[in-house]
């Protein structure tokens, strides 16, 4: 009897393993699946489509648009519905219905040249940000990054980041916009609005955070550091005040040295040591 049970167990394990191995990974997870049920506390699929139409300012009838739903994706900052409409792509926040990502395929020029300068591109991005991110004007949004990125066969684009600053602290309210370097059109938009729920006064001084960060690397030569306070969200509904310390040092054998270190701004503990690849 026991032998037979063992045989059945072995056969069951074999069958189960083969079935699992033959399915794509996404079939085993909720992510990428076809979960059509509306969020228990947030918006449903149809409402999410309406939000996309509103975002685009599209005058077309909803039913005439080529929407495809690709499931939902869970990020530490919340869950989103993933849609495509034609060649465009959108992530819609499941709780509040905000468009947190939009990609406009037709905006990407095939010429790969840099035809407009950074200032022009920034102006275009800022106009778009003010139109789509409703609290851009009322918040203290600072431009924190502006770069030209070469994606090779994917063309070139400018990337701009605006972050809300409260008492010098970067909050989670940020916008990341890319602009085609040839035609100046908006290629992509990533944005989040999250309420700041914690005290933004640090106990740890910047110099102490930098010292703790540098200790992680051992012997660096000619190191340069840049440190700023930021709100972090290590898991949903958990906020933390941190120092983000960026370290760059002299290359060794042609390899860059340094990286990022995240230091708890209340107790000085190292949260993340994140060296360069």
């Amino acid at each position: 009897m026991m032998k037979q049970f063992t045989k059945i167990s072995i056969i069951s394990v074999i069958i189960a393993s083969l079935v699992i191995a033959s399915f794509p990974a996404a079939a085993l997870t909720k992510e990428g699946g076809q979960d059509l049920s509306p969020s228990s506390t947030g918006i449903g699929i149809d409402e999410a489509k309406n939000r996309i139409v509103d975002f685009d300012g599209n005058s077309k009838n909803l039913n005439s648009l080529d929407f495809k739903y690709h499931g939902s994706i869970k990020f530490p900052y919340g869950e989103v519905y993933d849609f495509s409409e034609g060649k465009n792509r959108y992530y819609v926040n499941k709780e509040n219905g905000d468009i947190e990502f939009a990609y406009f395929s037709d905006a990407r020029s095939s010429s790969h040249r840099v035809h407009i300068d950074k200032q022009q591109a920034k102006n275009n991005a800022e106009i778009f940000a003010k139109e789509k991110y409703k609290t851009f004007i009322t918040r203290n949004m600072e431009l924190t990054e502006s770069t030209l990125i070469d994606h090779g066969a994917g063309g070139q684009e400018y990337a701009f980041v605006w972050s809300e600053k409260i008492n010098g602290v970067s909050t989670l309210n940020k916008i990341y916009i890319t602009v085609d370097s040839d035609n100046g059109k908006i290629i992509s938009y990533l944005a989040k609005e999250r309420e700041t729920k914690i005290n933004l006064e640090p106990n740890v001084r910047q110099s102490d955070a930098v010292r703790a960060a540098l200790e992680q690397f051992g012997n660096l030569k000619d190191s340069r550091t840049d440190a700023y306070l930021s709100l972090a969200c290590p898991e949903p509904d958990v906020q933390q005040l941190v120092w983000i310390v960026k370290v760059n040092a002299a290359p060794v054998d042609g390899l860059v040295q340094g990286g990022q270190v995240v230091v708890d701004a209340q107790n000085g503990k190292i949260i993340l040591f994140n060296p360069f690849n």
């Binding site: 994706i73 990020f75 530490p76 900052y77 989103v80 792509r89 992530y91 947190e100 990502f101 990609y103 990054e145 994606h151 994917g154 980041v161 970067s170 989670l172 940020k174 990341y176 992509s188 990533l190 989040k192 930021s230 709100l231 972090a232 969200c233 941190v242 983000i244 990022q260 995240v262 993340l272 994140n274």
Partner: peptide, 15 residues
Amino acid sequence: YYAKVDTLNTYWYLG
């Protein structure tokens, strides 16, 4: 491209 978008969404505070 979309792996980049996923990374930005996941490491939002860190960049």
